[in-house]
Design a protein around this nucleic acid. Structure first.
Lengths: 220, 220
DNA sequence: ATATATTTTTAGGTTAGTCTAAATTTTTTA
DNA sequence: TAAAAAATTTAGACTAACCTAAAAATATAT
């Protein structure tokens, strides 16, 4: 029993929207994320429920079953491994790899994934700082904090992003904010909550609240 | 205007069956190669003709147009590059890569192909000895000969295979017949046309006519 | 050269995944 | 808590790619 490209996408998106606590995902949220209409989502939900991949009661929203979760995590594993390949081996920028990985993640073949993983040296994180599930499906979300939660005066390490939009990533590139960079929060502007920061001890830089909200960091 | 997975497969198969001289390909041959029924092929041929990818007149068989040929060659380029990747980088055997490459070849993205090509060092041949078209679509079929055309006493270089079946390739592995091996034809058995050969100067080996017919070689 | 066999096409249906419009259920608000 | 709003589902259709069965065209053979 093989899952289609489309089914895999639904499961992946349900996983993402459902979060660590397994919150119910609404039909409309799925319609939004899949760029389809709510009616189409309902059809697919019925099918996924019949296959035992989601818990679904009409009008109640959905969550993944254990077996649905497994499929979703495999897709995520593949997506993130391919992203590492594209950036580390082929030289793509971190802003360029999402769409291609979106296709590669649906290539079936367990052995392909495992050989790719070995070839890449069993990476733990993808180019955006997202953790890569291991072959058994163990996915430990590291407890990063968002830059907005960092106090003035603190120095933290840049570990990942919440927004994966190419335009956001390119903006970070232009600001010199890359994974592993040291970010020192110097001041928070009361009016618009923008921040003055120093990246790797360089000159002072202003970043908007919108940017801060999408930066994942770690205390050292 | 993007071509679907299925359309690309049809074009690739028409290219293969059509050969260098652009011979007309029959509906039944396509049904056989695509594992579908003749009626389904007719449907698809009508569609491909409408898109200007094939020359099609009812009951007359089909050939590729220039634009169809271009698409087919791009697919073949991708297929063969991915096969090189799978064997050279991931460590797959040459008997294991066909089905996976069959999926990877349909991943769209010109830049992906070009970066992959560069990463692999612009290889000229895939793991089965098939030539890889360049980025412009130039595909020069090398003029190899089949082992059956080699005279007794000759020493030739093993350059490729006509049959790509895993069982055939595994048989060659077990016989030590790999790309680049020196094959010396010692004797042809009159009765069944089987051959006594020496591989890289090793012990004498018997290979059947069936095997000889599928080995591509080159005089040195 | 006509009858037979083969190949190909047409006609009409199926499934997956999508759609719009209408009906129904749930939620919000006054 | 009843009316209005929002969310969701149902009903009915569409397209791509496939199918079977029957009809039509081409090829083969006596």
């Amino acid at each position: 029993m093989q899952n289609s490209f489309t089914e895999e996408n639904y499961l992946k998106i349900i996983h993402a929207l459902s979060g660590r606590d397994g919150i119910e995902v609404s039909t409309n949220a799925l319609a939004e994320s899949t760029s389809t209409r709510a009616a189409s989502v309902t059809d697919m939900l019925r099918k996924l429920a019949e296959k035992g991949l989601i818990h679904y009661k009409k009008y109640q929203g959905v969550t993944l079953t254990d077996s649905g979760e497994k499929v979703a995590i495999k897709v995520i594993r593949k997506h993130r491994l391919w992203e590492v390949f594209l950036v580390e081996k082929l030289g793509f920028g971190w802003d360029e790899v999402h769409d291609i990985a979106e296709e590669l993640e649906h290539i079936p073949s367990e052995v392909l994934v495992e050989k790719l993983d070995a070839f890449l040296g069993h990476p733990k994180f993808d180019p955006h700082g997202d953790p890569i599930p291991d072959a058994k499906g163990n996915l430990t979300e590291p407890d990063y904090l968002v830059l907005t939660d960092v106090q003035v005066g603190e120095k933290v390490l840049m570990m990942g992003v919440l927004d994966h939009a190419p335009s956001f990533l390119q903006h970070l590139d232009r600001s010199g904010i890359t994974l592993g960079a040291v970010i020192e929060v110097q001041e928070i502007n009361e009016y618009d909550k923008s921040a003055s920061v120093r990246i790797n001890g360089g000159p002072t830089l202003f970043i908007s609240l919108e940017v801060s909200k999408n930066l994942l960091v770690q205390r050292r």
